[in-house]
Simulated assay, not measured.
Amino acid sequence: MSYSVGQVAGYAGVTVRTLHHYDKAGLLSPSERSPAGYRLYSDADLARLQQILFYRELGFPLEQIAAILADPDASALDHLRERHRRLNDEIARLHRLVEVAERAMEVQETGVRLTPEERFEVFGDVAFDLSYATDAHLKWGASEGHARAMARAAAHTKEDWRRLMAEAAEWRGRLLDAYDAGAAPDSDLVAGLAEEHRQHITRWFTPCPPETHCRIADDYVEDARAFALVVPAAQQRPGLAVFLREAVHANARRKAGPR
């Protein structure tokens, strides 16, 4: 059976121009001609085209494909092994580039300009989830407070982060003690802890009025990734995020005073 250039292009998912190029390069010339002189491809031509496209998909240049097809039994396996090695090298290189890109995104999205080793040393179990950082940037990126927080975070030194995290850990310990002791979220003790948290954000990142603090605390309940920045997963208790949110809202009501 014979096929026109247009039919072959449609079957193979290539352009007519590509087939003409393969013909000109001597890689795939149609075996037949119609009475009117048009190119016609045979079933054997289609099988050869399938081989060509297979090697092209693997990244072989046309010259090398021509050499393989000229003597497939003698050279195809060696060529494939070499291409396999090069592809693995390229995959490893791309993995390294992905890691570099992820670190760059983390810097941009979280504002934490530390090496991975420094991050582990300073943050320990508190992990910056890049997906949350990206979502937060999309959610809050237009706000002045978010921009200021990112700028402040980017300016922090390793020692700043060490002090910040030590302060947060000490506060977190007292929050957990209050929760474990059954303190009410609107008690003086717990509302005071909420106020300390608000001041912590103001001191290290951006001014945090009570209404903004409430929105941040709401996020702790709605998104586990956000709460993990405050209390690592290993230290969390059931209902703790809701407890902190209620404490923050209780503190905000105190700040607002009687209506």
Rank of each mutant, 00 (worst) to 15 (best):
D177N: 08
I216R: 08
I216F: 13
P209N: 10
H213Q: 09
I216A: 10
L229F: 08
A224S: 14
R174Y: 08
A154H: 06
A191W: 00
A183M: 04
D188W: 07
A181Y: 06
L164T: 07
T202W: 02
A194R: 03
A183H: 11
P232I: 14
T206F: 02
T157F: 03
A217D: 01
T212V: 12
I201L: 14
A226D: 05
H146V: 02
P210L: 06
A178T: 01
S187A: 10
H213D: 13
E211N: 09
I216S: 05
P185D: 12
A151L: 09
A153F: 00
A224C: 04
E222T: 11
R203F: 02
E159C: 03
H200R: 15
H156P: 01
D186F: 00
R215W: 10
W171A: 05
H200K: 13
L164S: 12
R174I: 00
I216K: 00
A142W: 04
A149V: 07
M165N: 12
A154N: 02
Y179W: 13
D218E: 11
A178D: 00
F227R: 06
S187G: 15
H156T: 01
R174W: 05
D218V: 07
E144T: 13
A178K: 02
K139N: 08
S187C: 08
L175F: 12
S143C: 05
W171E: 03
E170H: 11
T206S: 10
K139V: 08
A217G: 01
H156D: 00
E211R: 08
P232L: 10
D223R: 11
K139W: 09
E144R: 12
E159Q: 05
R172M: 09
G141V: 09
D160K: 03
H213I: 00
D188Q: 12
A181Q: 07
M165V: 12
A168W: 11
A224G: 14
P207L: 04
A149E: 10
E195K: 09
H146W: 14
A166M: 11
G141Q: 07
